[in-house]
Structure formats: C-alpha cells, structure tokens
Nucleic acid binder design. Structure first.
Lengths: 218, 218
DNA sequence: CAACGTTGTGTACGCTTGTACGCATGGGAT
DNA sequence: ATCCCATGCGTACAAGCGTACACAACGTTG
C-alpha cells in the first residue's frame, strides 16, 4: 500500500495515460486502464483528474512539451544557413524515424480536439510550437501554411499507410517557403531562381489577422 | 413491427450511423444508438453489420461518395479557365459554408483510419477522390501536395476553432500549384512572376514512385 | 503528546455496452 | 393448402464503465 505522500503521482498518472493512449488509443482510455498502467488505485485517478477530459488535456499538454523540445533541439531550424525546407524535412524525417507509434499517439491527441472543445486551446499551442520557430525564418502566414502542409503530409502517410518521402516533401515545402518573406536565410543555396519573386502579394494578402488565427485562445 | 422484407434497411442503418456520428462523434456510435436513430430493432444492426468497424467502413464509404460528388459537381475544378488555386479555394469555401457539422463528421470518419487499419483503404479512396481531379490539372506529386495542404488548412481551422481565410488559402495553394506542371490551365492570370521558375527540378524530384504513394492498397 | 483535518484509498452502485440465443414470421416447395 | 426452413427480431446476460461514498492514514497544530 503505501505511498501516502507521493507528489509525483499526478505526473505518473499522466505518463500512464499517454502510454495507454499510445497502446490502445483514446477509445481505450478509462480511469481503470490508467490506474492499472500507473499502478495506482482506481480512486487515485479520479481524485487527481475529475474527468477524463481533464486527464486528456494534461496528456496533450505533456505531449506538447515533448514535441516542442524535439522541434527546438532536433532540427536545425534555428540555423539560418540551412534552407527552411531542408530543416523541416529533416525534422519530419526524425519524427518518422521514431516509428508510427509515437506519431499516432501525438496525432490522436491532437486530433481529439476536433470533437472536444476543451482540447482546442491546447491543440492551438501544439500548432504554435511548430509555427513559432518557423515564423522566425519567414512571415507568419507562410509559417502557418508550412505547418499545415506538414500536417497534411504526415496525415496522408499515417492514414493511408504509406511511407514518408523526403524528396517530395522538401520540394513542396520549398515551393511554399520560397514564396514567403525570406528572413534570416538569405542566400538560397539552390539557384537564385526565387530571387526576384515573391513580389506577388507578399504580406498584404497573407494573414490579415496578424498572427491571429493560430492561437484561438478562450 | 412489421417490415419483413425491407431491402433498404441496410442503407437506412448506414445513414443513421452517419447522423449519429455527426451528432455525437464516433465515441457515441453504438449498436443501440444507431438502432434508435434508424428506428430499427437492436438485433437488426448486429445482423446487418457484425461489428462496429464494418458499419464504420460502410459509413465512411458513403461519405466518400458524397464528398466525391461535391468535388465533381461543386467546384469548377474541371474548367481549365479558372486557375487551380482559385478552384480549390472556392471548393473549400463551399465546404466550409456548410458549417462545422458536416466537416467534423467527414474528418472524424477520415481520421478514424489512424487507429483502425481496416479504414485505411477507404481513407485512401477519400484522398484519391480529391487528388484525382486535381491530377488532371497538374502532375501527381503536386496534386497530392495540394491535397495535403488542403487537409492541413482545414484541420487547423477545425482544431483551433478559427475561421477559414480564402485569401491566405488561395495564396498558398497557388505557390504549390505554380511550382508544378501546369497542364491545361495555361495562362497564370496573376502576374507571370512564376514564368521562368519551376526550373529547379520540376519532375525529377517529385514523386519518384509515379503516382504511387497515394493509393497505399493492402 | 493528542486530536483534528486533509489527503488518499478501496469498494459498491447504477448504467451502458457488445453479444448470444430462442422465438415469431413469411415465402417457397410440394 | 400446408408444411418447412431461412430470415429477422426482441430479450436476456455478463462485462466494463464513470461516479459516489465511507473509511484509513498521515502531517499539522494546539
């Protein structure tokens, strides 16, 4: 029996919840299943998290942290020398190299926001975790579009059971990125074909709401 | 009581299932809930669909048909005169104009494939329904990327509770589209800034597997 | 040192779920 | 016209769920 004062119990429950979702999906998440996984009594989970949604929010938020760290540390996103598209492709490659499991987990939590309004703000944070570093390299609208394309590509792979194609991914990301403001990464190392471009309507049309939309907030 | 010979019953159950998912999400789908919605006895649903997955497949497939029809009839995708990005933006606008409800429904069914391998082939068909008409206007890789971006944009809106921004959408779609092979829709009506471009590696790098990936098959 | 209050535990309850099974029923063969 | 069998229906059951509640145990305070 035992641990009367266990300040890390809450954390352990969250991690257990993540493992459960990873193994059985959100459908398999129940107070009982996380209690069993975390090796705590059933009442303990209901005590720390009044509802499953609350637990889900905590789990998604925890995933956000891991994801944000991966984005920050993993790819050379901050390095102005490597083209944005390359950095993002590399980042995605790292992500995929971990296998379907972790990606399924993170996407399932992320996509759960579709039906659970309480998760939407957290989902927004998730998107921001990706958009924000990218926005340091280009304009906000382009950053958001790059994120959208990244999501779309990942989902196509995950949903249809295909494989990740770095070459295709980089090409498409580059098309998006080179149309946007090209801060910091000046010399496009790959032919200056894009030099004179992006004249079209670089910022005016893009994201009239400032960086708005992305963080919906409450 | 009654209807002994009801050949449309199966269809009615599918439609009821779609309504249930639309109203309560996949989590709310049960043999009982669809039976109640379809006004058939409980045993009838288990008789026609041995498992819920089977029912889900049928529902997703039915949604595919509706979606494919919307794509075919709705947007002027087939019209070479209107730029691809414009047509797609219009299509998305139509889709969004129906409100969150139908979109949530279709995406939830689509995204359910993440955890249910049986749905993956059907999800692949869903993607194809969009990719295929687009592929008539550009190369397969670009078509797939456009679809991915569309998905990503929709999800960003749906997941963060934002609003659809046609101007931003068209801009980003155009960047992608103008980098690809530009069949049929010749004159880029919006400034020929992109004329000399797409020299980089127009086709070589794009989708080495032909139109491969998209249809994962089994 | 003792008593109290807070924190945490374990069980018990009502409900919904998927599934299995016995019975009514209507069409086809004789 | 009658009988029979396959088809379809309604119910009954066991399992698992979220939640509520009564007790045990610890830290704290007087």
């Amino acid at each position: 029996m035992a641990r009367r004062h266990d300040p890390e119990r809450r954390e352990r429950i969250i991690e257990a919840a993540i493992r459960v979702v990873g193994a059985q999906g959100i459908a398999g998440l129940s107070h009982r299943s996380v209690a069993a996984e975390a090796d705590v009594p059933l009442g303990s989970t209901t005590y720390h998290f009044a509802s499953l949604d609350e637990l889900l929010v905590a789990a998604l938020r925890r995933c956000n942290e891991n994801f944000a760290r991966m984005v920050r540390e993993g790819g050379g996103l901050a390095d102005p020398a490597v083209p944005l598209a390359d950095a993002l492709t590399r980042l995605l490659g790292e992500w995929f190299s971990g296998g379907r499991g972790p990606m399924e987990l993170e996407y399932e939590l992320y996509l759960a926001a579709l039906r659970r309004p309480v998760l939407r703000p957290v989902a927004g944070e998730w998107a921001d975790a990706l958009v924000e570093p990218i926005a340091h390299r280009t304009d906000p609208a382009t950053a958001r579009a790059l994120t959208a394309l990244l999501d779309g590509i990942c989902l196509q792979v995950l949903l249809t059971g295909g494989e990740f194609d770095p070459v295709y991914t980089r090409e498409m990301l580059a098309r998006l990125a080179e149309g946007g403001a090209d801060r910091s990464a000046r010399g496009p190392a790959r032919g200056n074909a894009s030099s004179g471009r992006r004249r079209r309507d670089p910022r005016a049309t893009a994201d009239p709401a400032g960086d708005g939309r992305t963080r919906s907030g409450t």
